[in-house]
């Protein structure tokens, strides 16, 4: 990122009470307070949210797509973790 730009912040919006914050996009801002103001103007012009989180994009640690095999594939052959793996006779209920 060019040093001429204000730092980048990721914006998370809670659409309504009871839901978790969800990533909406990003904004540039000089500091946290301004990031919240920009997030409000950019991502909630139509009552899209009741709460905002902003955090510096540089602080996000993410997995590398090249590691997605070792990270996620081991779960593929563990189908016994799903309830549908188990055969229950007809007539048995509440299970």
């Amino acid at each position: 990122m060019s040093s001429k730009d204000w730092p980048l912040w990721e914006v998370f919006v809670r659409a309504k009470g009871g839901l978790s914050h969800r990533h909406a996009g990003s904004v540039h801002a000089a500091d946290a307070k301004m990031a919240l103001e920009h997030a409000r103007d950019t991502y909630t012009r139509r009552m899209e949210g009741v709460s905002l989180w902003v955090l510096p994009s540089a602080q996000i640690v993410s997995s590398d797509p090249r590691d997605s095999g070792p990270l996620f594939e081991p779960a593929e052959d563990k189908i016994y973790r799903h309830p549908t793996f188990y055969k229950i006779p007809d007539g048995i209920t509440h299970i």
Partner: peptide
């Protein structure tokens, strides 16, 4: 702004 942000994910800066 949404679009500049999307373009920035490709490694170009807003300033550029």
């Amino acid at each position: 702004l949404y679009l500049y942000s999307a373009a920035e994910t490709l490694g170009t800066s807003r300033d550029e």
